[in-house]
Nucleic acid binder design. Structure first.
Length: 790
DNA sequence: TTGGTCAGGGTTTTT
DNA sequence: CCCTGACCAA
């Protein structure tokens, strides 16, 4: 390898550096070995280190591998140290994956890549360093969507705009759109700004930004937009970053929006060592600001760019690839790639029509069961739908059959109400001036502090320039409040002060749990009888538990505003169910693609709103779906589908006819799936061919004992009448209430994971006072204590 | 202030 | 059909 400088044997020459030299030598050998697994195109993508590079990486062509090897190569050949490289991704998941794989490639040297992360995480890091230059303090808070919306509503009300005609959602959408395009309030084209709320769009945007500034807060869009502002107004700061980032790598370049493009262009301007990896055929986020144009225009934007096409697919068999390629070839706006494989043709893509969506769900489930009978692992099966609404019927069927499945996507962990509430409690505790947090939970659980009281607080706070929490404290000293309101409000503010003091001295996760209990928040869910209450308590428990991984509360809050995901139960033997969008980047042996009907897929809305471009994006989505499959892709459509509760007839997707004939098999629905079969579904005929399947038998076992209803006794009912019945929900409730007698006694020796061994000096319900041998006297919850052995 | 009822609206999703 | 938000009565 020409790039392997001075591979001298250790011991040769200067003895002073022998250990380091040996270590370096080992590093280089690894790197070289690594390169050998690459095909010529991949290798070119890795080894063209200087100047702009665009890697057009088709589905399954080893995109991540190229990206990680490139980084390893830069480091191993001493072109850059880990901290000289800027590597941006869109999702935390992708960033984590890259970190992991780089670590595996070059060992601990790659672990500490400080500038590998999402656009937003890196933007945050940069902004915290220069906050004052853009009018912020470095401890600014990052607002989530719901805080953003609440703020937006306030702004709309302040400006005397009718919220009915111009809902906060719409304003938020408009502002997001502008931010995605890199436009600050002053830069929005006047005509465009005027089109919102009778010419008030611009004013509202300005007012919203002003509110954010007062709160020392930013939204997600600002994390990029303010970087642009920072760099444009402070050329010296920009120059510093341009110099610092010797090499820039970008993942999923086809998903970048204008703001991100500008962000990258500013940084890459001086050194021009920018490598973007992406696939124009997998651009499916146009509706949220992604500009396919960014990738289509790359050579123009970065003159002299080297373009490398990765077209050798290592994932799918021939017919699947042919189907996907044939389909995507119908798109006009693309750079053009032809995926090829050395793999066998394999099974053809199947297309099956069903009478209605219920029948489609039954067929699908039956196919899965027959695969299962042939030892196909369930974890290698995925069902990809266009919209989440399709999931319900499919889930119903799975539940009925007892087929284990998991839904990927859905509301993100940190977007769930209970998590946002818990976070709000912590934020309001940690930061007296976090008005949004305080406002969120002031009456959650219900305390009788409603709109009227809140209005009073706002008025008082604004008049005296005080944050709400302080305003509440002061107002309690006056007699402006009704006695009842005053006492609850006082109790609340005093609790906050007490919790704030506890954070100083107690382990943060324990304080958090205490806050949730003493505020009555946990109790609120314990009393809630609805089906998901147990799950919410479970989430809260997980939330508290996850805090323990952070050194303190502040660090936890910082992390959580950008990243927080539900712990996924991986590797479980289950079928996966998700939207096509959620499936990007994943692969499975068998992929089911139901709902290929015009209007649903391609979606009518995409067609109406974006015309040909919309259709092409839908087609790319279809392409993404097909290319998830390694061995089997099974399309289906229904002739009748329930849309918003109403049955309407549909026609097969135009995409079906665009598939190359030779790659497709039309498979008829099994005979017993005739129209209206659902009516007889609950009345087994002993000789009917479909009733011998294991699934049917399980369905019987599951259905019969439900609420004492025998089968067939619910005529006309929904065939999946399952979720309505009483269901036992498992799950341990979060921290038993304070009243429960503790299992601990005075004088008992105990052990605490953080404070070590100690002796119990007091018991109050589940709160214990413990004299720790090392840490002194602390108040802790019994759930954090184990009976001591020593 | 709270809880009920009713009308309206309803892709895709990350940070 | 199912969820959310607005409005109204107690």
């Amino acid at each position: 390898m020409q790039n392997r400088p001075h591979a001298q044997p250790a011991g040769d020459g200067a003895p002073a550096s022998s250990i380091a030299a040996r270590a370096m030598g080992a590093l280089r050998r690894d790197a070289a070995a690594y390169l050998e697994g690459l095909n010529p195109e991949q290798r070119r993508a890795v080894e063209t280190t200087e100047g702009p590079v665009l890697v057009l990486a088709g589905a399954g062509t080893g995109k991540t591998r190229v990206l990680t090897t490139r980084i390893a190569h830069l480091i191993a050949t001493n072109r850059a140290r880990p901290f000289d490289i800027l590597a941006v991704t869109f999702t935390n998941k992708a960033a984590r994956e890259m970190k992991h794989r780089i670590g595996a490639l070059i060992g601990p040297a790659g672990e500490g890549m400080p500038w590998l992360g999402t656009f937003h995480a890196i933007g945050t890091k940069i902004l915290r360093r220069h906050a004052e230059l853009v009018g912020l303090k470095s401890d600014f808070t990052i607002l989530g969507t719901d805080d953003q919306l609440r703020l937006m509503k306030q702004v709309i009300a302040d400006q005397n705009v009718d919220e009915k005609r111009w809902p906060a959602r719409a304003l938020s959408h408009a502002i997001d759109g502008w931010k995605n395009r890199g436009l600050g309030p002053e830069q929005v084209p006047p005509g465009e700004a005027a089109s919102f709320a009778f010419g008030k769009g611009g004013t509202l945007y300005t007012a919203y930004q002003a509110r954010l500034a007062t709160l020392n807060a930013v939204d997600f869009g600002d994390l990029l937009l303010l970087c642009l502002k920072l760099w444009r107004e402070n050329p010296d700061v920009l120059a510093n970053y341009q110099d610092r980032f010797r090499y820039i790598l970008v993942d999923e370049y086809q998903d970048t929006n204008v703001a991100q493009y500008l962000w990258l262009r500013l940084l890459a301007q001086s050194r021009k060592n920018i490598a973007c990896v992406g696939d124009d055929d997998q651009s499916i986020y146009g509706w949220r600001g992604a500009e396919v144009d960014n990738i289509l225009r790359f050579e123009h934007d970065f003159p002299g760019a080297v373009v490398v096409r990765l077209e050798r697919n290592y994932r799918s068999t021939g017919h699947i690839l042919a189907a996907a390629s044939g389909l995507i070839a119908k798109n006009e706006s693309r750079l053009g790639k032809t995926l090829r494989t050395d793999d066998e043709p394999g099974e053809r893509v199947t297309v099956t029509g069903a009478w209605d969506s219920e029948e489609e769900a039954r067929m699908l489930a039956e196919s899965i069961e027959s695969l299962q009978a042939k030892q196909h692992p369930l974890s290698e099966i995925v069902v990809l739908v266009r919209i989440s609404a399709q999931m319900r019927e499919i889930e119903d069927r799975f539940v009925q059959l007892g087929l284990p499945y998991r839904v990927i996507g859905g509301p993100r962990f940190y977007e769930r109400a209970e998590i946002r509430d818990a976070l709000a409690y912590l934020r309001a505790t940690m930061n007296v001036s976090d008005d949004l947090a305080f406002e969120r939970i002031v009456n959650t659980p219900k305390r009788g502090l409603g709109d009227a009281t809140l209005q009073q607080l706002h008025t008082y706070g604004r008049a005296n320039r005080l944050p709400l929490r302080i305003a509440a404290e002061r107002l309690c000293e006056t007699d402006e409040l009704k006695p009842r309101v005053r006492s609850t409000l006082r109790a609340l503010t005093e609790s906050f002060s007490r919790w704030a003091r506890l954070v100083e001295s107690q382990p943060h996760s324990e304080v958090a749990q205490m806050i949730l209990e003493e505020s009555g928040y946990t109790e609120m869910w314990q009393k809630d009888r609805s089906a998901d209450a147990a799950g919410r308590l479970e989430n809260l428990k997980e939330f508290v538990r996850s805090m323990e991984e952070f050194p303190d509360m502040a660090a936890f809050l910082e992390h959580v505003s950008l990243v927080m995901e539900a712990s996924e139960t991986e590797g479980a033997e289950r079928v996966s169910l998700m939207t096509l969008h959620a499936a990007k980047g994943l692969e499975f042996d068998t992929v089911f693609l139901p709902g290929w009907e015009d209007g649903l897929f391609p979606s009518q809305r995409a067609l109406d709103e974006s015309g040909r471009a919309g259709l092409e994006e839908e087609r790319r989505l279809a392409h993404v779906g097909l290319t998830r499959a390694r061995k089997r892709a099974k399309l289906s459509f229904a002739v009748n589908r329930r849309i918003h509760g109403l049955w309407s007839s549909t026609i097969p997707s135009r995409f079906i006819d665009e598939l190359p004939e030779t790659a497709v098999d039309v498979v008829e629905a099994p005979a017993h799936f005739s129209a209206g079969a659902s009516r007889f579904d609950r009345n087994p005929t002993p000789f009917g061919s479909s009733y011998g399947t294991p699934g049917w038998q399980r369905a019987q076992a599951n259905t019969a004992p439900q609420g004492g209803r025998g089968f067939g006794s619910a005529p006309g009912g929904r065939s999946g009448g399952f979720s309505g019945g009483p269901r036992q929900i498992e799950g341990e409730l979060i921290a038993k209430s304070t009243g429960a007698p503790s299992a601990f006694e005075m004088g008992q020796r105990v052990f605490h994971t953080k404070f070590g061994p100690g002796t119990i000096a007091g018991v109050d319900g589940n709160k214990l006072t413990v004299d720790f041998d090392k840490a002194g006297r602390k108040m802790v919850l019994d759930s954090f204590i184990q009976a001591g052995s020593s």
